[in-house]
Design a protein around this nucleic acid. Sequence first.
DNA 1: ATGAAAGCGCTAACAG
DNA 2: CTGTTAGCGCTTTCAT
Lengths: 345, 345
Amino acid sequence: MRVSLKDVAERAGVSVKTVSNVVNDYPHVTPAMRARVQSAIDELGYRPNLTARHLRKGRTGIIGLAVPELGNSYFAELAGAVIDAAAQHEYTVLLDHTQGQREQEILVCQGFRARVMDGLILSPLELETEDLAARRDDAPLVLLGERRYDLPYDHIVIDNIAAARAAVRHLLALGRRRIAFLGARRDHSHQPAHLRFIGWQAELAASGVAVDDRLVATTSGWGHEDGARAMAELLDSGERPDGVFAYNDLVALGAMRVMFERGLRVPEDIAVVGFDDVTESRYAAVTLTTVSPDKEAIARLAVESVVGRLKGDQNHEAPRAARLLQPGFTLVERESTLGRRPHSF
Amino acid sequence: MRVSLKDVAERAGVSVKTVSNVVNDYPHVTPAMRARVQSAIDELGYRPNLTARHLRKGRTGIIGLAVPELGNSYFAELAGAVIDAAAQHEYTVLLDHTQGQREQEILVCQGFRARVMDGLILSPLELETEDLAARRDDAPLVLLGERRYDLPYDHIVIDNIAAARAAVRHLLALGRRRIAFLGARRDHSHQPAHLRFIGWQAELAASGVAVDDRLVATTSGWGHEDGARAMAELLDSGERPDGVFAYNDLVALGAMRVMFERGLRVPEDIAVVGFDDVTESRYAAVTLTTVSPDKEAIARLAVESVVGRLKGDQNHEAPRAARLLQPGFTLVERESTLGRRPHSF
DNA sequence: ATGAAAGCGCTAACAG
DNA sequence: CTGTTAGCGCTTTCAT
């Protein structure tokens, strides 16, 4: 059987409390006592039972992170950053993926298999305001990404409209006029992908370029395959854009694959801009120009939000008002818009 | 404050046990009783405290998964598969990344911030046999990947030598004779990357092709950047392979980027084979021929191994002997060896 | 500075 | 079929 505090106490001939003090680095313990207890701990190979500690303290030291899809490297890279940021605060991350399904997102934010998590970082795709409003769980929740909800939760997201406009502006500056948007939802008056779509529209309008609905390609998801399919359909319909702004890098890369297959040159025939700046984009045959959100900042802010509220609870402070935090982004210009650059390697 | 079983019991005018029975779907409860208790639960918005349950039952329902790097989509995709497989057994996954650092791998397998995990799935890179032998934690552990340890832990790994040989055989069949290996470690008599390297050597030798050490490029890691750097160095050294077998897809893709930059055609000048079959490889400008391990099988077997041992403990069964499980793999032949194929889109 | 005892919320014997 | 009770291993008053 496992060795408990009591076993160590018996072995060292002291009380449990003393052992607990040593384990938790309590200030007032005589060095001699500490040494005695420590050796008992070592001899018995004692390891504290975190579950018991958690029950007692009411906190588990675990925060949840729920993203749509780990196969999308943006979320994988973000998850890595969150794990690291959490570790800085001595928190562990429980990772879940929702496949972008509303049901799964609801389950996660209701804390379904939770109550193990002190707090939750959620990157929703299909979740509706009403779902979130119906949330019973009182653990701190912070939202990530483009979807907006008018509810008192911290929300961390870059300025998607500004970022999209910067991307489109870049294409316009290159002289492109027939700029397609890849990755809208069927109902584009709605979330998600809404803001990037709006940004695309706004920038075109501001530059006096006609907004052509035939240049908007909808997708069901946002992976390579969706981008490829959307691009193929667009081309099959007879449209011939000279620029493409994609919902994200994966969609952009999938679309580029189709362009290559059909003998279209990037950027000569079609210039392409993505969104996310995943590692893959830096190593594509034609490197991808893309909006690069500050992932570390996003991760850090998300963790700080959750941890901050947790600390607040603990100190019986009045809850802070919900905040909208906007980390920065940059437009990284690469070959898919600028053309062949000098060798990097 | 949170509502507990006791509160519900008072409200419903029954004992805690009865409430517990209802919550746990105990068979022998009268429908009337069940209804009464259920409504009390609903009114109070009761949610069971899992931590308490865990303490009581000695199990947390959480298994850990530690991979080197989430940014590598192979591991991200694998993690997704493990999460799904675990969910089938009603387990939740705690994900960690070790950055392929020995220290971190040791910490994880010692169950450092653990005791929260009932079991652990670890994909080690630098961990040594001695580290593992020194493990005190008695939670079930299953190992993933190429590294072998002569210790009584289940190990799940495809036949790397056979897979590497199949890859090299494919290149040889295409008439290539100067086949480079990208991604060895400085000390190639050693793990990891050992088996794939051995397979490369063995297949060349078996075909009577000279094994040329100058065609072996070492890397420090296994990302795009490592592949790019290794390929650049190889070419700078004046070598001119006609085939490349890379440790993994990311290394292969990184190397291909360099080939494109230098005007080398794939596969005409250099045919390339990778390893892992990440999604990205199917959408590259030149799609990548690669060894495709059965990720779902790996995930399923890993979870079943851990869960099986957990069940065994519970039933006081004698522990099963450690097993070596080898899921299958296939060689997926694409453009990087076969050349331009008919359109997919 | 250390010890004794209570109890976090739950499940599992054991009664009834 | 339902109630009583004793802990799971730990932290934490409250004493000393």
